[in-house]
């Protein structure tokens, strides 16, 4: 039995930290963890991903197609790009806010984030869209988008990790002055 999580976005959005927190929480529970992430050239405004596998009988740190139980999408277009990795009955958590490619002004681009969200909804049964701008306004910080998305993923119940377990990890890993903000961020998305 194992769970596969794919985190994706654009370099600099905090996918790596979110992945690290999940790993640490799994590790603390004694669950085996393997992961892999983009390092190097692609980090400069490029598409980035983290693959995370938790459980037994796992060998490769990379996930295969239709293997992910959940995609944590930090950006709508990047989430669509990674959709082939999701199980047909998997869950998508996605941030609503598009990140324009850095070359958009130069090359011309009709990239539309809402069209990507609509496309995701047309394909996947379980899509949770996080209103990023509202979350940032409510929380008063743009730096914890990764934690908001992580909270939504835990809330969905698709992972064997609880919010309390992640909170313990945050308390250990995040600077004391930011713990309270992170706690609010993890609880931001609640079941309706």
């Amino acid at each position: 039995m194992h769970k596969c999580v794919l985190l994706c976005g654009v370099g600099g959005q905090g996918t790596v930290l979110a992945s690290k927190l999940l790993q640490a929480a799994a590790e603390a529970k004694g669950i085996g963890v393997l992961s892999a992430e983009t390092i190097g050239m692609a980090q400069r405004g490029g598409s980035v991903f983290s693959h995370l596998k938790m459980g037994d009988d796992i060998y490769s740190p990379l996930i295969g197609r239709s293997e992910a139980d959940i995609i944590l999408g930090f950006e709508p277009g990047e989430t669509v790009r990674m959709l082939p990795y999701l199980r047909k009955d998997g869950v998508v958590i996605v941030s609503k806010r598009p990140v324009m490619p850095v070359t958009a002004a130069l090359m011309g681009s009709d990239y539309n984030g809402d069209a990507m969200i609509d496309y995701l909804k047309s394909k996947v049964d379980k899509v949770i869209v996080v209103d990023t701008d509202k979350a940032i306004e409510d929380l008063g910080s743009a730096k914890v988008l990764n934690i908001v998305l992580l909270g939504a993923a835990l809330e969905s119940g698709a992972l064997d990790i609880t919010k309390d377990e992640i909170k313990e990890v945050i308390k250990k890993r995040v600077k004391p002055q930011f713990v309270e903000l992170n706690m609010r961020a993890i609880d931001y998305i609640k079941k309706e």
């Binding site: 405004g45 490029g46 277009g77 669509v80 959709l83 490619p101 070359t103 958009a104 990239y111």
Partner: peptide
């Protein structure tokens, strides 16, 4: 899918 954004390293 709609055309995906291209993000070359810059």
């Amino acid at each position: 899918a709609p055309a995906l954004p291209v993000r070359p390293p810059v």
